Amino acid sequence: MHGEYKVPGGKLVVVDLELVDAKIANFRLAGDFFLEPDEALENINAAVNGLPADSDAASIAAAVRAGLPENATLLGFSPEAVAVAIRRSLSKATSWKDYDWEIVHSPAVSPRMHLALDEVLAAEVGEGHRKPTLRIWEWNESAVVIGSFQSLKNEVDPDGAAKYGYDVVRRISGGGAMMMEKGAVITYSLYVPAELVQGMSFADSYAFLDEWVLEALKSLGIDASYKPLNDITSPTGKIGGAAQKRLGSGAVLHHVTMSYDMDGEVMAQVLRIGREKLSDKGIASAAKRVDPLRSQTGLSRAEIIERMKQTFTTMYAATPGDITPEEYAKAESLVEEKFATEAWLTRVP
């Protein structure tokens, strides 16, 4: 069995192993990481050999750590990264290069249509009717998109939303409320087969699926990094956040909103950002929580999106695609049946 795991912001970890009597045998670790002393590689191999095939990632990482000599130095990887690669090999996980990727950058639709397209396109990938896809959202309306499990009245000030022209909608993924001001955010969705993140924890998969956008931001001069669980950040402030939903069809929906520009005062009037949340972030106001891409790059929103598309294409050999009429029709039906209904919006009052 073979498994690979690219550590977000780090190096590639590659494992090969066999199973003998439900135990790991002939384990071999490789990669472009740095490890001292040399013999520590054999220590890791020895520590893994003999482990039960159903060992969880925490148990594997503990065994690797216990097997390392006291003076061992690991750069670009960790015992946890080795464990993820092993779990991916045992679960027959795939890699980015196993798929033909498409990039969809279609015209703006309504906020509810965006959310319906997320569900439809993810299901199409899971059912094998669509290639794995990166979709860039365009906005011609402003909206507040609340998480699947958030309380509507606790998250949104209806008077503030109405005053500034924000529609309020609910998505199928968890996480927090996002203010989508038209022309002021960059939003994208990834629709991927579940096998791509097989063997990873939710936390690992978030960073794994956004590695490419960190590379794009770094190429623009931003010192971007991932802050668990789901934040893309930089030394000057948070840039954006991710959310995820695993569908029964065998697909993963992963979407991210990054702030290109923002009005912190409007944000504070539209969203009910509680004192506890701000205190947890160690800051005094909502306006200081997010540092937009415009101020960090001096580039237009379109230029940043173009660099993102170029980076994804270079890394994963993606080709341009589009949404089919049939997919649009399914999404329109889903808007009527679900996303435009009061029952869905107020499922958590």
Results as ranks from 00 to 15, higher is better:
G321W: 04
G176I: 06
E303M: 14
S285P: 02
P132C: 09
D16I: 10
L229E: 03
G240Q: 04
Y164E: 10
R88L: 02
A318S: 15
I60G: 04
R135W: 06
Q150I: 11
D16S: 15
E195H: 02
N49Q: 07
V13A: 04
W96E: 05
T236H: 11
M113W: 03
A123M: 14
S249K: 07
G248Q: 01
K153P: 11
A207E: 14
I24H: 00
V252C: 12
V256S: 06
T257I: 14
S189C: 08
L35V: 10
R112P: 00
R246E: 10
A286K: 02
M258C: 07
E327V: 06
D159N: 14
E195W: 04
A25Y: 03
L75Q: 13
D32M: 02
P37C: 00
A302S: 15
F27R: 06
Q150T: 11
H105N: 15
D210H: 14
S59H: 07
P8A: 00
V145M: 05
F149N: 11
E181F: 01
I103H: 03
A85N: 11
E138M: 08
L19Q: 11
F77L: 03
P325L: 01
V104M: 08
E124G: 12
A108K: 00
K245D: 03
E276S: 10
V14R: 14
G240Y: 04
A57S: 15
N43H: 08
I60T: 02
V290Q: 03
D56A: 04
F339D: 10
A203S: 14
I136N: 03
A194H: 07
L334R: 14
D280L: 15
A85G: 06
T133K: 05
Y260P: 03
I304A: 04
L299I: 12
A268K: 10
K11E: 15
V266K: 05
G147P: 07
S148I: 12
R87Y: 08
L115C: 04
S333Y: 05
V82M: 08
G9D: 09
A58L: 09
M113D: 03
A25E: 13
A216D: 09
P111M: 01
L121I: 14
A340E: 02
I172S: 06
A284P: 10
T341Y: 06
V14Y: 02
K23L: 10
A143Y: 02
F312N: 13
A122F: 06
R130M: 12
L117F: 00
A207I: 12
D32Y: 03
E332H: 06
P111F: 02
M262W: 00
V20F: 04
L29R: 01
M200C: 04
D210K: 12
W96D: 00
G199W: 00
E119V: 13
K227V: 13
Y188K: 06
P320H: 12
G221M: 01
H105I: 08
G10P: 14
V13Y: 01
A184M: 12
A216Q: 05
A66Y: 00
A184H: 14
